[in-house]
Amino acid sequence: MNASLYEDVGGFDVLLAVCRRWNALCLADPVAAHPFAHGTLHPQHDERLAAYLAEALGGPRLYTGGYGDETTVQRVHAGNGAHPDLDEACVRLFRQALDDVGVPPAAGERVGDHFERQTVAMRVYGGSRDDVPSGLALPSA
């Protein structure tokens, strides 16, 4: 039986460490710091992102079991216009966080690719939160 990408990464604790490292890297980056530095993040942003990633990578249903669905995620991030420089910086730093935490390279590449696809996908709703349809399914990596 094949292990899930969630297992290949190392499970929830590793994902949480990646999210915390990513947050720290973003705060230190002049381009990526903007959404992290204004106190607008949910107090448990790292834990929620780790739950989202865990589920997307084939782990337990931690995000949809307690926080919401893909519509919830998209609406939180929608309505902020286009910001490709920010997106690129965040993706680059997320990949660095995967490496810094020691996620195995093959698994890290797949997770980084998923994170990048989802970051780009969020651009569809840059105009308004009202554009996000209800009932979106959380995408799997």
Rank of each mutant, 00 (worst) to 15 (best):
V73M: 12
R61N: 11
E55Q: 15
H45V: 08
L49Q: 06
H42P: 02
V31S: 10
L62C: 00
G79A: 14
Y63P: 03
G68S: 11
N80D: 04
A51E: 03
G68C: 12
A37M: 01
L57S: 10
G65R: 01
A54I: 12
V76K: 05
T71N: 02
L49N: 02
H38V: 13
V73P: 02
A33E: 11
A33H: 04
T64L: 03
Y63G: 03
A78K: 07
F36L: 00
A82S: 15
E55T: 09
T71Y: 04
G79M: 10
H38E: 13
A78L: 05
V73H: 04
A33C: 13
D85Q: 15
E47K: 12
G81C: 11
A37G: 14
G65D: 03
G79H: 06
T64E: 15
P60A: 14
E55W: 06
R48L: 14
E55F: 04
V73Q: 02
G59D: 08
D69Q: 06
A37S: 15
H34Q: 11
G59V: 09
A32R: 01
A37V: 05
A56W: 04
L53I: 12
H38R: 14
P84N: 15
H45Q: 11
P35F: 08
D69F: 01
Q44I: 00
A54N: 10
V73T: 13
A50E: 04
A78F: 05
L62I: 00
P35L: 14
F36N: 02
G59S: 10
G59Q: 08
A56D: 02
P43I: 03
D85M: 13
A32V: 12
G59R: 03
D69E: 09
G65I: 05
G58V: 09
L57P: 05
H45L: 09
G58E: 07
P30N: 07
Q44W: 00
Y52K: 06
G58F: 09
Q44V: 02
P35E: 12
